[in-house]
Computed example of a mutant assay.
Amino acid sequence: MPTSSSLVRHLRSAEVADLLGVDVRTLAGWRHKNTGPAFVRIGPGRGATVRYREDVVTAWLDAHTITTRAAETIAAQAPPFTAEQVDALGAILRGA
Rank of each mutant, 00 (worst) to 15 (best):
G90K: 00
D87R: 08
R12H: 14
L20P: 03
I74P: 06
L27K: 00
L7G: 15
T58F: 14
S6M: 12
D87V: 06
A17D: 01
R41T: 05
P2V: 01
R31T: 01
F81L: 14
G43L: 04
T35E: 09
L19K: 05
S13E: 13
L20H: 05
P2R: 12
I92S: 07
V24L: 11
A59W: 10
L20W: 02
T35M: 10
S13H: 06
G47T: 01
A91H: 09
A83Y: 10
P79Q: 15
A17C: 00
R51P: 05
A70N: 07
V24C: 13
W60D: 01
V16R: 00
D18N: 12
P44S: 10
H32N: 12
L11Y: 07
D87F: 07
K33V: 00
T58N: 13
D55T: 01
A78W: 06
A48Q: 05
P80E: 14
A70V: 08
T73L: 15
T67C: 09
Q85M: 07
A83T: 03
F81H: 11
K33L: 08
A59Q: 08
V22L: 02
N34D: 12
G21Q: 04
F39D: 02
W30M: 04
R53C: 12
A63K: 05
A76K: 02
T67G: 11
A75R: 01
P2K: 06
L27Q: 03
V56E: 12
A48S: 09
P44C: 15
A70Y: 11
R94E: 07
T49D: 13
P2C: 10
A38L: 09
V16P: 02
E54H: 10
W60C: 02
G29H: 08
A76T: 07
S6G: 08
A17Q: 00
T82N: 10
G21N: 04
A17W: 10
I74S: 05
E72L: 15
G29C: 02
V24M: 09
A38T: 01
T49W: 14
P37V: 02
T26P: 00
Q85W: 03
P79E: 12
F81E: 13
F81M: 13
L11M: 09
G43V: 00
I42P: 03
R46H: 07
G47R: 04
V16F: 06
M1T: 07
A91T: 01
E54V: 05
V50T: 07
D87K: 05
Y52H: 03
A48H: 04
D62Y: 14
R31K: 02
A75T: 02
L7H: 11
D62H: 14
T73D: 15
G95N: 06
T67A: 10
A88E: 08
V40N: 05
G21M: 01
A78D: 10
I92V: 11
